[in-house]
């Protein structure tokens, strides 16, 4: 089993196409993701954001194009080694409802080879439970959790092995105000640690200050990419960028 997480400095998407039969989901997507940066994928429903995230998570094979991790084509890299560097927080929690939060995290920690021994793993799990505010519910089966608590657990699961590439699909869904702030601070921590973070969200308010890059997709095409200095981006700027790319009046989006 792998014993440590793998840092990734750069992920490059080069001319990515994805077709499902007649339907083209992604068309000529080229994008570079750098370590220590947060990139938002924006766009309307069906724009291809989740498909692109699936390509980055190695769950969807592009019809054409290349995906490079630190300059190497993923098809030439060891799948187990690659998956060690990845994490995906999707719409579903991907946790076992009949196991407690602690058992879930310990299971995934073992699966990812976190820590050299049981004690190191337990400490990492305790640290994560504290980070996501689930210490008091740590030993309850996760089926008794509220939607927000499940989302916190899913987030802890995604972070358990300190991934080099962290992919978040609508991570703010189901979180209360405190949870939203917690998630934003965790994303900022991951960026500071040097992870590549990619977020899909329609919740611009908490996301905007975290962004280094915003990429707007429309009908499977990358319409616009905008870079920001740290903390410079605001909700209004994102809305403007989004409305220009979508060719729709700002009022209809906001």
């Amino acid at each position: 089993m792998p014993t440590e997480s793998r840092a990734v400095q750069q992920v490059v998407l080069r001319g990515i196409f994805k077709d499902y039969g007649e339907k083209r989901a992604l068309s000529d997507i080229s994008l570079t993701l750098e370590a220590g940066q947060v990139t938002a994928l924006l766009g309307e429903n069906g724009a291809g954001k989740s498909t692109l995230l699936g390509v980055l998570a190695l769950q969807i094979r592009p019809t054409r194009g290349k995906l490079l991790f630190d300059g190497q084509d993923v098809s030439e890299l060891d799948g187990v080694w690659l998956r060690q560097s990845l994490s995906l927080l999707s719409h579903e929690p991907r946790c076992y409802a009949d196991l407690s939060a602690r058992e879930n995290l310990l299971f995934f920690a073992k699966l990812y080879g976190v820590g050299s021994d049981e004690q190191a793993r337990s400490e990492r799990v305790a640290e994560l439970l504290a980070q996501v505010g689930l210490q008091s519910a740590a030993d309850r089966p996760s089926r008794t959790f509220s939607r927000g608590m499940v989302q916190r657990l899913a987030l802890a699961r995604a972070l358990v092995h300190r991934p080099g590439l962290l992919l978040l699909d609508e991570p703010y869904t189901g979180l209360d105000q405190e949870g939203v702030q917690l998630l934003s601070s965790l994303i900022a921590d991951e960026r500071a640690r040097g992870a590549i973070v990619v977020v899909i969200s329609h919740d611009f308010e908490p996301l905007a200050p975290l962004l280094d890059v915003a990429a707007v997709l429309r009908r499977g095409r990358l319409e616009k990419t905008q870079r920001y200095s740290s903390g410079e981006c605001s909700r209004e700027q994102l809305l403007k960028l989004y409305s220009r790319a979508a060719e729709r009046p700002l009022a209809r989006i906001a």
Binding site: V80, Y96, L111
Partner: peptide
């Protein structure tokens, strides 16, 4: 149901 099969497929295991 909870998409855990995908979580296992994404994990670094054989």
């Amino acid at each position: 149901e909870a998409d855990t099969l995908r979580a296992l497929l994404l994990a670094p295991i054989e």
